[in-house]
Amino acid sequence: MTKKTNSKLPSRGFLGLTIIDLYILKRYLATFAAMLLMFIPIGIIIDVSEKINKMIANEIPLIEIAIYYYHFTIYFANSLFPIFLFLSIIWFTSKLANNTEIIAILSSGISFTRFLRPYIIGASIISVFVLIMGFYVVPKSSEGFNYFRYTYLKGGGKQAMMGNNTDVYRQINANEFIYVNSFNTDSKVAFNFVLERFEKDKLVSKITASRIKWNPKDSTYTMYDYSKRTVGAINDKIEKETEKVAKFSFDLEDLTPVVYIAETLSLNKLIDFIDKQKKRGSSDINVYMVVLYKKFSVPISAFILTIIAVSVSAMKRRGGMGMNLTIGIAIAFGYVFFDKIFGTIAEKSTFSPFLAVWFPNMFFGVLAIFLLRNAKR
Rank of each mutant, 00 (worst) to 15 (best):
R27N: 06
L292G: 05
A309S: 14
A302P: 04
A160M: 05
V138W: 02
L355N: 10
T242E: 14
V130K: 00
K295P: 01
V245Q: 12
V291T: 12
T18V: 01
V258K: 09
I89V: 14
S49R: 09
Y226D: 07
I56P: 00
F86M: 06
G320F: 09
I24G: 09
K26M: 04
K348F: 08
M161P: 02
K202L: 07
A330E: 12
I271H: 10
G134V: 05
T73G: 10
D272R: 10
S210W: 14
F363I: 13
I121P: 08
D47F: 07
T113D: 14
Y150Q: 03
T5Q: 14
Q277S: 09
S266R: 09
E59P: 04
A97E: 00
I238A: 03
I304N: 02
K269C: 09
E59N: 11
G16V: 08
D284C: 02
I67T: 10
S127P: 05
Y119G: 06
T208W: 04
E239S: 10
S266Q: 12
T264F: 11
M35E: 05
F370I: 15
R170C: 04
G343T: 03
I44F: 02
L265W: 10
E64S: 15
L25W: 04
K240W: 08
S79Y: 14
L131I: 13
M1N: 15
I341K: 14
D47T: 00
S301G: 00
I103A: 07
V204E: 00
K316H: 06
Y335A: 11
D339P: 08
K158L: 12
A330K: 11
Y147L: 03
I172D: 01
Q171R: 14
K340L: 14
A233F: 11
S227G: 09
K278Q: 12
T31I: 05
G13C: 01
N164R: 09
L22N: 10
S219R: 15
I40W: 11
I327F: 10
G155K: 00
K244S: 07
L22Y: 01
K188M: 13
T93S: 15
G122D: 05
L25S: 09
M1Y: 13
L9Y: 14
V130C: 00
D218A: 06
L85G: 04
K4W: 05
F273N: 14
D284T: 15
I327E: 11
